[in-house]
Design a binder for these strands. Structure first.
Length: 940
RNA sequence: GGGCCUAUAGCUCAGUUGGUUAGAGCGCACCCCUGAUAAGGGUGAGGUGACUGGUUCGACUCCAGUUAGGCCCA
């Protein structure tokens, strides 16, 4: 048998089968760098805008899986919108100020920090932030993210800082800003405020006391069986020193409270805690009895007397009261506890905190004025005892907050803080209205943020730190009144524009105020605030600093896209400030994604050892595998990632890559300018495949624009492996390899391949960015337009949905359903070792379905090639008993398969009843093709 | 403890307004090919729909509770 392999048009391509992504992806990055994509050249001036506004990650440490997920999702959207013809500029941002950086820097500086000025510390912090910003920038690029990385926005950038100051000044002028007391963590040793992250917990011995507060006045009908003058409310506390600041007693609305007679007196405690309280107070079984009870709600606004001061204590109802310890009645000092403060706000209690910065009682506590609260603790207990108000007393060991630096126990102490008044000018109402206008994806985000906006107590914007933007406000030293004057505001802005934020720290109030400025109270002494702004204010106003400032962007943004935690964070603070400053939400759509969890669905923690570093994945798999993974997961929920998933992704990736490679290999001799064939010259199967491609592209567009990437992934996966690889291409190989190279039939197939290639290399680009660019770069010049140097310069394939009518589609469906039955019948022969290749078999078809029969007859002469067998007989009459039936009874198809009795063509390997006549061992199709060739020469 | 969310084959996802034997791809097992070859093709086995109860003629789908997990608070 002669060797005919050299006469075939076998695939030829230099496009490597093995991707080697970890090594090759950085080369694509360099290419993009060269194209100016990181300079903001990745946009289409003049085209309709699509603005995704980047939520700034904190410039601290390396990126983690969550950041990677977030940035890849954003990148997919931006690239899709860009390819679709939008001008979609992407400006990445970084959150640079804030506690974590300052904390790290101060820790590193050690004792030196105490001798440094704010300006000096700020310089160190800036260097630290810059270092990590650079690292993260490289990491994002490595993930394949394209954006204006050469000119990102940074909250520590002077122009950004100025925008923050302007936003603050506007809110100050419009009355949103106030200054009032609030309890915060305070270290009496360092005499400084502490942030949450600076608080450590350690075991501490405290005096725990039960205290009787005599009842003064009760709501009607409450404890009517008890003589009021003998009734007391019992509270339990581990901080007796806060009792002088007591202003109220909190109860839970749903708890049952009982009045208990013990000895001569009556005491109120929660019903479920009575046994514990009795034991604590030494009430013996039988010595006390319940005489009355009431639900907590009823106690609201009753009055008790302070145990040793001449003042009242208000009964309040709050959900924060627990029943796991104490008496179910909670001593409430709004100046000395977070929850006490919150409930105090609701009941309009003053934020009373008679303790100075060193932790000593001030003049308002006459008895112990100037005494340290730690020393006063036992004295308070003594006092209670002497007045008969002490019901129990013990020392307990419990976890207590300590200062990270001095390691001493800290306290809650009220100090003057700055606030955004959330109900000023109906801000809250307006925000809720705006929430209704925004599109939330997924839709439940709306409920989530609505609940949060409704329930938010207050927004404290002041922090007693150095690394941030100062609260540029001035207040009267005497009465505390805040200066709200347009001229002062202008002067402040002008100064910061000129000198930067350091100017604020270096100047005095008098440098900013006009000479002779006086407060309403008559004082002419003013204080310049040095507290800095909550970083949520900084990032929250990014819409002002970035969207409203950069000419290439728009206000509002089309999309904000962050993790679900940002309903509480960025989204909410952007909303408050957007509505306050501009009257509207700064976003049209808000999309949230879930958390990245480990393979078992558990949260990742460095300490738990289950954290995956995205940069490790870059080294092991490459960015496109991770990007494909992101597309495959339903990001609206939490996503699990593990080795198995990544292996799966590598496999799916290989299939897609190889399918592209197959196409490239079969187009090596195709010039679209001259070889293209019109639709009318397509073979029926080409029309089918082409239409399937169009259908899939349409569907992909739809899925992309609805942010449904799992759908994109599954459709791609299905189309590449089933429709193309196992379907069309398997059938096509015969024609591509054996037909006349330049003949119309082969060119028709190549035309379809070409359209598929051009369509799908772009359709895949938002996800498999590196690979599609690699493919694009490997395309011959005549495959692309002169200005299409990158795949991202190309235009999204406009798919036509009218490629097929429904009847034709149904015919093909029937034919492929029939093919499934054919394959099954052949499998029997194969298992019996009768045949190997399906071409060795032939089939006889029996059908009672008119529709199927018609469809089969229509394609009668090609069926053998569709089915990859050597003969298809369409038989009339009843099928023999041994026939293979279709599983789908509706198909009404039976098939008998047998080994072909024909002769194998040495070139195309199909079986024919007879070979020749042109060449003895070749079939009637191959003979003429080979005859036309130059002797022995390979096909050009 | 509260707000919001999730639970369908080993993995990733589909399942229309509750309606017959719950689907797909991948993986896996077995087989074929050796002209996409560190590729390609075929067949097959995999599901108590987290659990419990309720509504209904009928529930993966609606309701309640439980369990497990996630985010944000407390």
């Amino acid at each position: 048998m002669a060797e005919y392999k050299s006469t075939l048009n076998i695939t030829q391509t230099s496009f490597p089968m093995k991707a080697n992504l970890p090594q090759t992806e950085p080369e694509r990055q360099k290419l993009w760098e060269g194209f100016g994509f990181y300079k903001g050249a990745f946009k289409k001036p003049g085209a309709p805008k699509y603005v995704l506004h980047d939520g700034p990650p904190f410039a601290n440490g390396d990126i983690h899986m969550g950041t990677a997920l977030n940035k890849i999702l954003k990148d997919i959207i931006v690239k899709y919108q860009g390819l679709k013809g939008h001008d979609a500029p992407y400006v990445p941002g970084w959150d640079c100020h804030g506690m974590p950086i300052e904390h790290k820097v101060v820790e590193k500086l050690g004792s030196k920090a105490k001798t440094m000025t704010k300006v000096e510390i700020r310089k160190e912090c800036k260097a630290y932030a810059e270092k990590f910003l650079d690292r993260q920038r490289d990491e994002f690029k490595r993930l394949g993210v394209i954006g204006n990385f050469d000119n990102p926005y940074m909250t520590m950038d002077p122009t950004y800082e100025l925008a923050i100051v302007k936003a603050f000044q506007q809110m100050l002028a419009e009355g949103y800003v106030s200054r009032r007391l609030r309890p915060i963590h305070w270290c009496p040793v360092c005499q400084t405020a502490l942030a949450e992250a600076e608080v450590e917990y350690a075991d501490h011995e405290s005096l725990a006391v039960s205290v009787a507060f005599p009842a003064k006045q009760l709501p009607a009908g409450v404890f009517s069986k008890v003589p009021l003058d003998k009734l007391s409310f019992v509270i339990w506390t581990t901080t007796p020193w806060t009792l002088p600041a007591n202003l109220g007693i909190s109860v839970h609305p749903d708890f049952e409270y009982v009045a208990v007679k013990a000895g001569d007196n009556y005491y109120v405690v929660a019903k479920t805690l009575l046994p514990a309280v009795a034991q604590m107070c030494g009430w013996k079984e039988g010595d006390y009895q319940v005489v009355d009870e009431v639900i907590g709600q009823k106690l609201d606004r009753g009055l008790a007397r302070h145990p040793f001061l001449d003042q009242d204590s208000l009964l309040m109802v709050g959900e924060h009261v627990t029943a796991d310890a104490g008496t179910g009645l909670v001593h409430t000092a709004p100046g000395h506890g977070r929850e006490d403060y919150e409930i105090g706000l609701k009941y309009n209690l003053p934020v009373y905190s008679p303790v100075d910065e060193a932790g000593r009682y001030d003049a308002r506590v006459k008895e112990w004025e100037g005494m340290s609260i730690w020393k006063a603790n036992p004295l308070v207990v003594e006092k209670l005892k002497s007045l008969g108000k002490l019901l129990s007393f013990q020392t307990i060991k419990h976890s207590y907050p300590n200062c990270w630096r001095s390691k001493n126990p800290i306290i809650f102490r009220a100090t003057a803080q700055w606030f955004i008044e959330l109900d000023h000018k109906d801000l809250r109402e307006k925000c809720l209205e705006e929430i209704g206008r925004v599109q939330w994806v997924p839709s439940w985000g709306k409920d989530r943020i609505s609940n949060m906006v409704e329930g938010r107590a207050d927004w404290c914007i002041s922090r007693q730190r150095s690394w941030g933007v100062p609260i540029t406000a001035i207040y009267c030293k005497t009465c505390g009144d805040v200066v709200k004057d347009a001229k002062v505001s202008e002067a402040t802005i002008a100064m910061i524009q000129k000198e930067g934020l350091d100017g604020w720290f270096q100047h005095q109030a008098k440098d900013i105020l006009a000479v002779g400025t006086k407060c309403q109270c008559g004082s002419s002494e003013f204080v310049k605030e040095e507290d800095i702004l909550d970083v949520w204010f900084e990032s929250g106003v990014s819409h002002m600093a970035v969207l409203a400032t950069r000419p290439e962007l728009t206000w509002p943004a089309d999309l904000y896209l962050e993790g679900g935690d940002q309903h509480r964070g960025w989204f909410q603070h952007a909303l408050w400030t957007g509505v306050a400053l501009k009257g509207h939400a700064p976003f049209k759509t808000v999309l949230t994604h879930g958390w990245v969890l480990d393979a078992q669905g558990k949260a990742m923690h460095k300490s738990a050892g289950n954290a995956i570093d995205p940069m490790d994945l870059m080294k092991q798999y490459g960015a496109d595998i991770l990007r494909l993974f992101v597309s495959s997961e339903d990001y609206t929920e939490d996503v699990s990632i593990g080795t198995e998933m990544l292996t799966r992704m590598s496999e799916a990736y290989r299939r897609i890559r190889n399918t592209f490679r197959f196409i490239l290999g079969n187009l090596s001799d195709f010039d679209p300018k001259t070889d293209r064939v019109v639709l009318d010259d397509f073979l029926p199967i080409d029309r089918w495949a082409w239409a399937e491609g169009q259908k899939t592209l349409t569907s992909l567009s739809e899925a992309y624009s609805q942010y449904q990437y799992t759908r994109v992934f599954h459709e791609l996966d299905y189309f590449f492996s089933v429709t193309l690889s196992a379907g069309y291409f398997d059938i096509l190989k015969d024609r591509l390899y054996t037909f006349e190279a330049k003949g119309k039939a082969r060119r028709a197939a190549q035309t379809v391949l070409y359209d598929l290639l051009k369509g799908f290399v772009i359709a895949v680009a938002p996800i498999l960015s590196f690979t599609s660019e690699e493919i694009w770069q490997s395309l011959p010049e005549n495959f692309k337009e002169a200005n299409e140097k990158s795949v991202f310069d190309a235009k999204w394939p406009e798919s036509s949905a009218t490629a097929f009518d429904a009847t034709v589609a149904q015919e093909w469906e029937a034919i492929f359903a029939a093919k499934k039955v054919v394959l099954k019948s052949l499998e029997g022969l194969r298992q019996a070792k009768t045949i190997g290749s399906s071409l060795e078999g032939e089939v006889a078809l029996y059908t009672e379905s008119e529709f199927l029969k018609k469809a089969l007859q229509k394609h009668a002469e090609n069926l053998r090639y569709y089915f990859l067998v050597s003969k298809v007989d369409l038989k009339e009459g009843t099928a023999p008993a041994e026939a293979q039936s279709a599983e789908d009874a509706n198909l009404k198809l039976k098939i008998v398969a047998q080994k072909s009795a024909g002769h194998k063509c040495a070139r195309c390997w199909n079986y024919y009843d007879q070979l020749g006549p042109e060449i003895e061992d070749l079939c009637y199709r191959c003979g003429p093709v080979v005859q036309k060739m130059p002797a022995q020469g390979p096909v050009s």
